[in-house]
């Protein structure tokens, strides 16, 4: 196999790339997910894999490698062969946030960006009896009471915490971060009154906003989120540049064949915009968002740089 690969490299690449491309994919693709089964990333990736299987005409085997906030899966995947049969379905945190707080073996250069798939914002919510309701009042209340309120988040140095701290830093707010194992656990402690503020994904808390038990003053995207009527986007609060999103993407190992990358990116684009997938995303409060190839690389880099600034200021 390696002999063959070197041979391809040596002869006129353009001429050989076409047949290699035509053959692809002729066997099972292994899709690594850096999170346990059943979570948001896992569900989105599995649903997408079904559509991709259909469009690529090959089967996709899924491997969940959880742990370390995604860094275990990312480190393991980084060593895969760039032959197009190993793909990585992740959310942004293992690539842009985790390296800020952990000493990881990979960097953005260890991967070939293929395409992003969907995105959503995080939200901060309070119980219905919280004294204020609007985004501006909420921030003012927190600012006026330094150290009084606790907010649950998805784990120390996680994207959710950084998203909140970016806003808090801009406003000089001091709130106590309580890290939990995930949005479900945060919700449980929020509903039970063990923490004052819920910080996490929109879909998890949405049922309680609809039932009137919780209200969400803020989302971490620049624009408002239609599903959360009362919540202010950051632009309305004059903090548009502090936007932090949760988004998902599919990547490959370093040095993948550009022809394969382009082909995969187009297929992913089609699959993500398939009406059944768009509808599925809507139930989770996500919207399709496809950024391909090098543009995706640039997006990762700029997010990485912005978060590096926050985490340095936080002393993480």
């Amino acid at each position: 196999m390696t002999l063959k690969a070197t041979f391809i490299g040596l002869t006129a690449a353009a001429a050989m790339a076409a047949p290699a491309f035509a053959e692809y994919p002729d066997r099972t693709i292994e899709l690594t997910i850096p999170a346990g089964a059943g979570g948001g990333t896992d569900t989105s990736a599995r649903k997408l894999a079904l559509l991709l299987e259909e469009k690529l005409g090959t089967s996709i085997a899924i491997l969940n490698v959880g742990g370390g906030g995604g860094s275990v899966g990312a480190s393991q995947f980084m060593q895969a062969k760039p032959d197009g049969y190993a793909l990585f379905a992740t959310w942004n945190s293992p690539l842009t946030t985790v390296p800020q707080v952990q000493d990881v073996a990979y960097s953005l250069d260890s991967f070939t960006p293929i395409a992003s798939t969907s995105e959503t914002a995080y939200t901060l919510c309070v119980k219905a009896d919280f004294p204020v309701t609007t985004g501006a009042d909420f921030l003012a209340e927190l600012e006026a009471n330094p150290g009084k309120y606790t907010y649950g988040n998805d784990g120390i140095g996680g994207t959710m915490q950084l998203a909140a701290e970016r806003i808090f830093q801009a406003k000089g707010i001091d709130a106590v971060a309580i890290p939990f194992g995930g949005a479900g656990e945060t919700l449980q402690n929020f509903l039970g009154g063990h923490v004052d503020i819920y910080g996490g994904s929109i879909s998890t808390v949405l049922p309680y906003v609809e039932s009137g038990e919780a209200k969400c003053p803020i989302v971490t995207s620049a624009a408002d989120v239609p599903a959360l009527e009362g919540a202010s986007g950051l632009e309305a609060l004059g903090l548009a540049d502090k936007e932090t999103l949760l988004w998902r993407a599919i990547l490959g190992p370093k040095d993948m064949d550009p022809a394969v990358v382009e082909m995969l990116a187009n297929v992913i684009d089609e699959a993500v915009n398939d009406p059944s997938y768009v509808e599925f995303l809507a139930t989770k409060g996500e919207v399709p968002n496809v950024v391909k190839g090098d543009a995706l690389g640039a997006r990762l880099q700029s997010e990485y740089d912005a978060l590096a600034e926050v985490s340095k200021a936080l002393g993480l």
Partner: peptide, 15 residues
């Protein structure tokens, strides 16, 4: 459909 370590014999065949 779990991925297991690939068989050497198969890749020898392929070459």
């Amino acid at each position: 459909e779990k991925p297991l370590p690939r068989e050497l014999i198969l890749s020898l065949n392929a070459v």
